[in-house]
């Protein structure tokens, strides 16, 4: 995933200038991926070079709106139709840390319990943010995704604890 695909998707709904793109990107991703405006304009310049977008007229404030080209639309379609590969993800620090704790630490249970309390706090904060999220389903679903990931981590920690108690 790159910023350029996100911008292409937003531009497919009509011409927009940089500040609009940044605001819409952040609100639809639940503010989980903050962009700075320099990043937005650098990306737009590169996309223009590659023929994916083109500049339109400047408005009364001198802001230039960008619009998506046919090539840009084709690139966006290609992106949406390609699933994300599992293997692109980096190694999980928590998994490595727990494996080492179980091998070397006299009380791995404490490591598990501390992690579980921390993950639960994260879930409580995410749930709070979800209750406050009023910007439509995209924002809520991004938060749901993070809640599901935290939940998977909790389940795995419970599983670790149960397995260690038996061994």
């Amino acid at each position: 995933m790159s910023v350029r695909h996100g911008l292409l998707a937003l531009l497919s709904r009509g011409p927009r200038h940089g500040y609009q793109l940044r605001a819409e990107f952040e609100s639809s991703t639940g503010a989980t991926w903050p962009l700075n405006i320099g990043q937005v304009y650098t990306t737009l310049t590169r996309m223009e070079r590659d023929g994916l977008v083109e500049q339109g007229e400047a408005d009364e404030h001198g802001r230039v709106a960008y619009r998506i080209t046919e090539a840009g639309r084709a690139e966006m379609e290609r992106w949406f139709s390609t699933p994300v590969a599992q293997s692109d993800r980096p190694r999980d620090e928590l998994v490595i840390k727990l494996a080492l704790a179980i091998t070397t630490h006299p009380n791995a249970h404490q490591v598990i319990q501390a992690q579980r309390a921390a993950t639960m706090r994260t879930m409580q904060e995410l749930t709070r943010a979800k209750r406050a999220a009023l910007d439509g389903p995209a924002q809520r679903l991004v938060l749901d995704s993070m809640i599901f990931q935290a939940e998977a981590e909790q389940r795995w920690l419970d599983h670790c604890e149960a397995v260690l108690r038996e061994s």
């Binding site: 639960m120 879930m123 409580q124 749930t127 935290a150 939940e151």
Partner: peptide, 12 residues
């Protein structure tokens, strides 16, 4: 027994 629902609480 599901943490995603416990996360609605003030205290767990």
């Amino acid at each position: 027994h599901e943490s995603r629902y416990a996360a609605w609480a003030d205290r767990v």
